[in-house]
Simulated assay, not measured.
Amino acid sequence: MANDAPYVFAVGIMGNLVSFCCFLAPVPTFYRVCKKKTTEGFQSLPYVAALFTSMLWIFYAYIKTGEILLITINAFGCFIETVYLVIYITYCPRKARFFTFKMIFLFNVGVIFLVVLLTHVLAKERTARIELLGWICVVLSTSVFAAPLSIIKVVIRTKSVEFMPITLSLLLTASAIMWLAYGILLRDIYVTLPNFVGITFGTIQIVLYFIYRKHRPGKDEKLAEQKDNATNEENANTTVSSENHAANSGGFVDIEIGEKKEDKKVEEAQKKQEQAENKTREASSQLQHN
């Protein structure tokens, strides 16, 4: 088989290593969640989607047979994303918990069952089954790259890369490059196409970072942008994470955007409280002097 060649196996191992790092990126976030016993307002959908795509690629590798490197990294993805979701469900508000359970049932149970059913009903031969399942993987994996469009739009309009971590963008782009090379060496178009899209969006984000990294928008500009684009910025919470849904890149990202905003709101509230206390002390001091 093609992946028996040493250089193909080596590229696959490198892809596994980079994707492994990407999958572990949210660990600090969930450590903080466990410590504070709150999810701080960030969303579970990226983790549900990551679990879904990992399950999908494991099924593809199983049908194709011999794709042990796809199975290993996506099996780890299924494990770590399940851990993330368990932690999230434990500490999230009731409404978010209900939404998360609904998304898990819809994607990780319903859609996966539908895909398995379609591949066995519509394709009787193994070759036809691989082709059908491969294109399903391509469509679903590529479609998640719509999410980075949100953060790219926010970066361009605000001229700020505050909510676009460059380290994670670099990791995800490197992962996509490894798996693109792996797909090309295997002559597997279903692995190649989604990662080509991943490299494209990753490159755009890296270029934008270096263009706007020194720009610091004023407070008024930030407030106006947040007010006018509240919906876009909420969607941006799933930005970088969605990139890693590319075939086999598997890596997931720390969803810091919503958390940073919450932290800013808390800091602003604390500053206002401190200012009010200072004014009260000054007034008391004046009264005592009088």
Rank of each mutant, 00 (worst) to 15 (best):
V154R: 12
I112T: 00
S141A: 15
V115A: 13
T119K: 14
W179C: 04
I177L: 03
E233G: 01
R97P: 00
S169G: 07
L168N: 01
F98G: 02
N290A: 12
A174P: 04
D4W: 03
N74G: 13
S249P: 03
T173C: 14
H245K: 12
L140R: 08
M1F: 09
V161R: 04
A50N: 10
F163P: 07
P46E: 08
V83N: 05
M1G: 11
V18K: 15
I13V: 11
I211G: 04
T72A: 15
N278Y: 05
Q43L: 14
T72D: 05
V27Q: 02
T158G: 07
K36R: 15
V197H: 07
Q288T: 09
E268W: 02
C22V: 01
L168K: 01
A25L: 11
F30Q: 01
G15E: 08
P46F: 14
Y31V: 03
F76G: 13
L180M: 11
A96L: 15
D220W: 12
V115T: 12
E225V: 06
V116W: 15
A174G: 04
V139A: 13
F9A: 05
S249M: 08
R94I: 14
E225M: 14
T158W: 04
F52E: 12
K36V: 04
V109I: 15
K222M: 11
I136L: 13
L69E: 08
M55L: 15
Q275N: 10
G202P: 07
A246K: 15
